[in-house]
């Protein structure tokens, strides 16, 4: 670790390669994650700091291996469970139910 006094996300000033200029249009599931994050905060379940705390605690491996909105949905979930909106068991049951509906994102919408 180059700077042990800093956490992994505090990357300002580190050496790095050329800025990747690739871009993409947001998929509907990404827009839904964005909307749920904003609305979850408006409902008072967590703050932007709560979102950030979970993202930073995921660590560098998650930053490298997951996409932006994959990390956001993971943080959203953690914050909502902590706020008592639903339980881990309810989430697990619901995810199994969703998966049983089909094989693509479009096919499993209720």
């Amino acid at each position: 670790m180059e700077h042990p006094e800093r956490r992994w996300h505090d990357m300002g000033g580190d050496a790095a390669g050329p800025v990747p200029m690739d871009s993409h249009d947001f998929a509907i599931w990404e827009k839904r994650v964005d909307a749920l994050v904003i609305l979850g905060q408006q409902r008072g379940h967590f703050t932007v700091d709560g979102l950030r705390r979970a993202l930073e605690d995921m660590g560098e491996q998650a930053f490298e291996s997951m996409t932006y909105y994959e990390r956001w949905v993971a943080s959203l979930n953690q914050n909502l469970i902590e706020a008592g909106v639903y339980t881990l068991e309810e989430l697990g049951t619901k995810m199994e139910e969703v998966k049983a509906r089909g094989d693509t994102y479009g096919a499993v919408q209720s």
Binding site: H24, A27, V85, Y86, Y105
Partner: peptide, 28 residues
């Protein structure tokens, strides 16, 4: 821009989680 894998791709773990969260929040 290239389209990112969306409705027509194989359902991913994180997409499943998004749907589950959304449906739980609506049900509650």
């Amino acid at each position: 821009h290239p389209y990112r894998q969306d409705n027509d791709g194989a359902l991913t773990y994180w997409q499943t989680m998004e749907i589950a969260i959304r449906e739980l929040m609506i049900e509650k």
